[in-house]
Computed example of a mutant assay.
Amino acid sequence: MAERMVKSNGIELWTESFGEPGNPPFLLVMGASAQGILWPEELIDLLVAGGHYVIRYDHRDTGQSTSFDFQKNPYTLADLAKDALGVLDAYGIAAAHLVGASLGGMICQLIGILHPERVLSLTVMMSTPLRTGVVETFAQAFQGQATTEALPPPAPRAIEVFMSAATNPPGNLQEAIDYQVKVARAMSGSVAPFDEQECRRTVERIFHRARNPAASANHGLVPSPTREQAEALKNLRVPTLVIHGTDDPMFPPAHGIAAAERIPGARLLMLEGMGHDLPRPLFGEIARAILAHTSAKA
């Protein structure tokens, strides 16, 4: 593995690569407010063993990448997509297999729409179809308001944990760590027992390696996709695999089903008991599915 700071879209992004640069490349795109290190190295090792070169990175406003004052320098989903393409540019990669989790899945969908020539394949994990109003719907749900969208809101356990921070925000670093562990527990599925000790070690690492831990909240201010972007999803012609969990509390299963239905030709893999996370017992199945999906397009 090799860490590297790159210039992308006018900012600095932390990146890390695994495997041989000459092999077919993967770019792993994490979710909202999430650092690239949340892509488990055990899962990455399986992709590398499958003959691929794998890159993960910290989004802007997370980890060791550039942080922003969002009020002075707001940005959009399209800017986050440009960041991802800038990572590929910095590594001299013309096109890659994109794997996106949660918000990362939406970013990857947008790249597939705007720059299909840069995409060998898409894998959209625990995400939702690119659409308008998604941010507003989540804001309503986390404020205890009824939502009007056809797709279901987050599950009660997700709403409860996020509302708890709104009414009683963490007051110091230890409380912030404790809260993030609570969030991770709420996001986990039923496929394996929640490992609090491992989670706490990961959360502590996240806080200690962040340039500005508070900046990650800026991802919640990124506006929803535009109507034009959402409508363009029906024209996406990139080979796509949708992976979703039956126990996902953030994007209930209907979101994964909708993504597979709205992306032309997409295949759906629904994993029993997976939540809004990447559980170790499913690393092998996830890796095999991704490698099978990408092998014919390498």
Score class of each variant (00 low, 15 high):
residue 255 H to T: 09
residue 111 I to V: 14
residue 283 F to S: 08
residue 160 E to Q: 04
residue 143 Q to C: 09
residue 123 T to R: 01
residue 297 K to Y: 15
residue 251 F to N: 11
residue 195 D to S: 07
residue 89 D to A: 04
residue 219 H to Q: 05
residue 173 L to H: 12
residue 247 D to H: 11
residue 111 I to F: 08
residue 29 V to M: 11
residue 241 L to H: 01
residue 47 L to D: 01
residue 241 L to S: 08
residue 263 I to Y: 01
residue 171 G to H: 00
residue 48 V to F: 11
residue 55 I to D: 03
residue 142 F to T: 06
residue 109 Q to C: 10
residue 95 A to G: 01
residue 175 E to P: 02
residue 102 S to M: 01
residue 195 D to A: 05
residue 128 T to Q: 14
residue 228 E to S: 13
residue 61 D to V: 08
residue 145 Q to T: 06
residue 44 I to E: 07
residue 187 M to A: 13
residue 8 S to Q: 07
residue 267 R to F: 07
residue 42 E to A: 14
residue 215 A to K: 06
residue 171 G to W: 06
residue 182 K to V: 05
residue 258 A to C: 08
residue 122 L to W: 00
residue 9 N to F: 08
residue 232 A to E: 10
residue 237 R to P: 03
residue 194 F to N: 04
residue 17 S to R: 02
residue 20 E to K: 15
residue 278 L to H: 06
residue 230 A to N: 09
residue 115 H to S: 15
residue 162 F to S: 02
residue 260 A to I: 01
residue 229 Q to H: 13
residue 189 G to W: 02
residue 250 M to H: 03
residue 50 G to H: 08
residue 55 I to M: 04
residue 212 N to M: 03
residue 245 G to A: 07
residue 144 G to L: 10
residue 237 R to V: 10
residue 244 H to C: 13
residue 59 H to C: 05
residue 293 H to R: 07
residue 204 E to H: 08
residue 167 T to M: 02
residue 7 K to Y: 12
residue 192 A to I: 09
residue 158 A to V: 00
residue 51 G to A: 12
residue 282 L to F: 05
residue 9 N to S: 11
residue 183 V to M: 05
residue 183 V to D: 05
residue 39 W to K: 07
residue 73 N to D: 14
residue 168 N to Q: 12
residue 25 P to E: 10
residue 151 L to D: 04
residue 13 L to D: 09
residue 15 T to I: 07
residue 205 R to I: 07
residue 230 A to Q: 09
residue 75 Y to A: 04
residue 183 V to R: 02
residue 30 M to F: 12
residue 60 R to Q: 10
residue 260 A to W: 00
residue 133 G to A: 12
residue 167 T to F: 07
residue 191 V to I: 14
residue 126 M to Y: 03
residue 50 G to R: 06
residue 110 L to T: 00
residue 20 E to A: 14
residue 178 D to K: 05
residue 21 P to Y: 12
residue 41 E to M: 00
residue 217 A to W: 11
residue 88 L to N: 10
residue 211 R to H: 13
residue 250 M to L: 14
residue 163 M to Q: 15
residue 79 D to V: 00
residue 28 L to P: 02
residue 158 A to P: 02
residue 261 E to Q: 15
residue 86 G to Y: 06
residue 281 P to M: 02
residue 153 P to S: 07
residue 16 E to H: 12
residue 214 A to Y: 08
residue 229 Q to E: 15
residue 53 Y to N: 02
residue 275 G to W: 03
residue 16 E to V: 13
residue 19 G to D: 01
residue 180 Q to I: 02
residue 45 D to Q: 14
residue 229 Q to N: 14
residue 245 G to P: 08
residue 217 A to G: 15
residue 71 Q to G: 06
residue 133 G to Y: 10
residue 198 E to P: 03
residue 23 N to Y: 11
residue 24 P to D: 06
residue 154 P to Y: 06
residue 38 L to K: 13
residue 199 C to M: 13
residue 34 A to G: 12
residue 200 R to N: 03
residue 280 R to M: 09
residue 294 T to V: 15
residue 201 R to T: 13
residue 62 T to E: 08
residue 85 L to T: 02
residue 2 A to V: 13
residue 105 G to Y: 00
residue 246 T to C: 02
residue 18 F to R: 03
residue 120 L to C: 10
residue 233 L to R: 11
residue 250 M to I: 12
residue 48 V to D: 04
residue 89 D to E: 09
residue 190 S to Q: 11
residue 43 L to Q: 01
residue 288 R to T: 15
residue 78 A to R: 09
residue 187 M to T: 04
residue 146 A to F: 08
residue 237 R to S: 15
residue 83 D to Q: 08
residue 123 T to P: 02
residue 68 F to E: 08
